[in-house]
């Protein structure tokens, strides 16, 4: 009871000093929770075109945000939204989402596409997207369990040249057909 009274006195005092004049800068959670309206609570996205961020690697989130901000990575809303934050805030958000329990989407996948995608992955992607896209190497993202629709939009951006890629990725990706890319998306989405 006594502790509670002290807490109340403290909170009343903080309030009396005018909350916004004596307040701390936004915490990682304050920054990141605002993203959840589109990316789901803690980054557990329920919308197939919005990537799940829960359990994503910090570096991949930071690099994505920097890419959106510079315009190097194409986007709809993210180019503008990323301009609202500093590099330090990108780091804070990356840290926040990377610490969340990895989220596996629940979606209907085509078995034949998954099998075909597994072969294509082994041949073309496995050197960088290690452990079937579950682990990260350099700044490659975690892709295992991601939404098919999101992966398809990303690959379409690469394939059309809208999104730049380094030479080794381009060498591997350019010869692939639309149905190949589709199969690869299904494969990564299937990895648990």
């Amino acid at each position: 009871m006594r502790i509670k009274a002290i807490q109340w006195a403290l909170s009343a005092a903080v309030l009396a000093m005018s909350a916004s004049a004596f307040s701390a800068p936004p915490t990682p959670a304050m920054l990141s929770n605002a993203c959840a309206g589109c990316h789901g609570t803690h980054g557990e996205s329920a919308g197939p075109s919005m990537p799940a961020l829960a359990g994503q690697s910090k570096i991949s989130i930071v690099e994505s945000m920097k890419g959106f901000k510079s315009g190097e990575r194409p986007s709809t809303v993210m180019g503008r939204l990323s301009k609202g934050y500093s590099d330090a805030e990108f780091e804070a958000m990356g840290e926040f989402f990377s610490r969340q329990k990895p989220f596996t989407t629940s979606q209907t996948l085509d078995r034949a596409k998954v099998a075909k995608g597994a072969e294509l992955h082994e041949k073309n992607c496995a050197r960088c997207h290690v452990e079937n896209g579950k682990e990260i190497k350099d700044n490659s993202p975690v892709m295992a369990g991601q939404w098919v629709k999101y992966l398809e939009i990303q690959m379409a951006d690469y394939h059309s040249g809208k999104r730049k890629m380094f030479d080794r990725k381009a060498e591997r990706m350019k010869p692939l057909s639309q149905s190949d890319l589709d199969a690869i998306a299904h494969f990564y989405a299937s990895v648990k």
């Binding site: 002290i6 807490q7 109340w8 403290l10 909170s11 903080v14 309030l15 909350a19 916004s20 004596f22 307040s23 701390a24 800068p25 936004p26 915490t27 959670a29 304050m30 920054l31 929770n33 605002a34 993203c35 959840a36 309206g37 589109c38 809303v77 939204l81 609202g84």
Partner: peptide, 24 residues
């Protein structure tokens, strides 16, 4: 979310955290 965060801060005698929000 900002309101919830700061109500919890106030009720625990912790410092208020600046608002950061988005509209889409």
């Amino acid at each position: 979310k900002a309101c919830a965060t700061n109500i919890v801060n106030m009720m625990n005698g912790r410092e208020i955290v600046d608002f950061s929000g988005i509209n889409t």
